[in-house]
Amino acid sequence: MAPISIRNNPDRLRYEVLDGDLAIGQAAYVDDGEGRRIFYHTVIDEDYGGQGLAGRLAAQALDETVAAGLMIVPVCPYIKNYLGKHTQYADNIQKPTPALLTVLNNALARRTRR
């Protein structure tokens, strides 16, 4: 097994957990263009479960989001749960609103039409 790494892949709008060059997990997001990053799906390949990779992924994704000056909009259940346990992000969270959910839905619809 190669060293596990985590990187932001802005072309694919996701943070990725990599085993060498193989993507084994992700935290997908949409940026709304107004200073908010909407996290909507987090997953780790079941073969890599139980290693704390989802927590490492969430921490890096959220730390980099805050460092970039963006607000965190948690739609993904994993990210919501993680934020509930890690209060250091409290000042950087914006609850999802109907308008932000529309931004997310529109962005996802555009991606599926490609």
Rank of each mutant, 00 (worst) to 15 (best):
R56I: 04
V30H: 03
D21S: 13
G33T: 03
G49P: 15
M1V: 12
P10D: 07
V30F: 06
G20A: 14
E46V: 14
Y89W: 04
T65H: 00
N106P: 11
N9F: 08
R37Q: 01
A23Y: 04
A90P: 04
P98C: 08
A90G: 03
N8Y: 05
E34Q: 15
M1A: 11
D32A: 03
G55I: 03
A90Y: 09
V17A: 12
R56Q: 15
D19G: 07
L108C: 00
V66N: 08
V75P: 06
G50M: 07
Q94V: 13
N92A: 11
V30L: 00
G20W: 05
G20F: 02
L104N: 06
N81P: 04
Q94R: 15
A54M: 07
A23T: 13
A90C: 01
S5Y: 13
K85L: 09
D19H: 09
Y48H: 14
V66E: 06
L13M: 11
N92W: 11
G35L: 01
V73N: 02
M71T: 09
A58R: 07
R111D: 08
N9Q: 10
N105A: 15
K80N: 11
Y15I: 02
A2F: 08
Y29A: 00
K80R: 09
T112P: 05
Y15A: 00
A61R: 04
A61H: 01
N9E: 10
R56N: 10
N8F: 03
I79Y: 02
A67F: 06
A54Q: 00
V75Q: 01
I44Q: 02
P10W: 02
I4P: 10
I79N: 02
Q88C: 11
K85W: 04
V66W: 06
A90M: 09
N9D: 13
D32P: 06
P98T: 15
A68W: 09
I4H: 08
V73S: 03
T42W: 02
D47P: 10
D11Q: 13
G69D: 08
I38T: 04
L62G: 03
Q88E: 15
D11F: 07
V30S: 00
A54K: 02
A90Q: 13
Y15W: 07
I72M: 02
L13S: 12
G35W: 00
R110M: 11
H41G: 02
D21P: 12
G33C: 02
E34L: 12
I38L: 11
N105S: 15
Q60T: 12
D32Q: 00
L70F: 08
P74G: 03
I24P: 05
Y15P: 00
A107T: 03
G84I: 06
G33Q: 01
T112M: 13
G55Q: 11
Q88H: 09
N92F: 10
I4E: 09
L22G: 14
N81W: 13
R110F: 05
P77N: 06
A28L: 10
D19L: 10
A109E: 14
D91N: 15
R37T: 04
T97R: 01
K80G: 13
S5D: 05
A28W: 01
A27C: 09
A109Y: 01
G50R: 06
I79W: 06
S5T: 12
A99H: 11
G49Q: 15
Q26G: 13
L101H: 08
Y82W: 12
Y48E: 07
A99K: 15
P96M: 06
D32Y: 03
Q26V: 10
D45S: 14
K95V: 08
L53N: 07
Y89I: 03
Y40F: 14
I72A: 03
L100D: 05
